[in-house]
Computed example of a mutant assay.
Amino acid sequence: MPFVVSTEANLSDHVRRQRVYDGTVFCLSPRASIRAMADFALDMVSRAFDGRDPMTAHRDLAVEEYVGILAALKPAFTHHLRSKELLREILLDLGADITKTYFDVPKLRVVPTASYLSSGLGYNYSAHRDTWYAAPDCQNNWWVPVAGNAAVKGMQFHPDFWGRPVENSSSDFDAYEWNRTSRRDAARYVTHDPRPHPKAGTGMEGSAVRVVGESGSILSFSGAQLHSTVPNETDSARISFDFRTLHIDDLMARVGPENVDSRSTGTSVRDYLRADTFDPLPEDVIAMNDADGSANGVLVFDPAVLEVN
């Protein structure tokens, strides 16, 4: 199947989701709701670096100091009430039914030069599917460039393996063990990253395609798409944010791309919040999707355990 990129912005949310499940990647032009959240993110980043230009701060800071800034900044953005409110406005703007759409809290990415930091809080993702991280088959991924040249330091897709299995390490990933240790410990890793990130086998990622939009644009794609980080080999940072959504009807009906190769355990669906009320999914719906996760793990990650220097 050819790799399909669409810029159609007026589709219903239902039609767009079905197209995403068929492998289409949507690249939507900037709109006011997305710019509002991008501006909020950039303001938080700028404040965190306290007068330094966040695009070049890594040139002057010791990497440990830089990581310390990110260790406070990233969860502050992710769990800020305003982030959730702005994300809800984006979903409304895109035509989602916010009584049935659930989102995972947004993640802020500040990616400096790869030779400076590519582990832990600056992790450069190898080719992977989000389903390998115990995500549901119907997960929709959304990615927004905020600042920096996304063409040379953003993300890329590996379309040769859409709907086709690829050798991978997802059997080593358990969502509840990840919650217990790996999410908590990210800031500890500066020069290496031993966490069990699922990834495609060496040399197994196939071709790479970059879909680039300007600041404030948004990419929408399936969590089953094989994708990776483009290592930042420039001398300035890249800032972006991303989030994930699911429609409860799709989750209950098990709609989405076929799981061709994920062997991860547990489930990430407990992380999702209803877009209008910020309530979690009902327990009976969660139980339908729980996949034999570790009995010793943590079902829901508590950001209070993060170590902030």
Rank of each mutant, 00 (worst) to 15 (best):
A237E: 05
V63L: 03
S264I: 02
W142H: 13
D43K: 14
T99R: 13
G120P: 03
L306A: 04
V298I: 14
M252N: 08
S228M: 06
R17T: 15
V110E: 10
W142E: 02
A96L: 14
A304L: 09
H128K: 04
M1A: 08
R238T: 12
E283Q: 13
F3N: 08
A287M: 06
A275T: 06
E8S: 07
A127E: 02
G68Q: 03
F161D: 03
M44V: 09
A134E: 00
H192E: 11
G297Y: 01
L28W: 14
V144C: 08
P196V: 06
G23A: 03
G23L: 00
S171F: 15
E258C: 02
Y102V: 00
K74A: 09
A224G: 12
Y66M: 00
W143T: 02
W142L: 12
A38Y: 00
S220I: 13
P165I: 00
P145F: 00
P257L: 08
V105K: 02
K74T: 08
I34C: 05
L81Q: 07
G122P: 03
N296W: 05
F26H: 09
P136G: 07
F278T: 01
G122A: 13
G163W: 04
Y116A: 10
V63F: 00
P2N: 05
V209P: 15
I69T: 15
H128C: 14
M155C: 14
T7M: 08
A96I: 04
R52G: 07
P106N: 00
H80S: 14
S240V: 13
S169A: 07
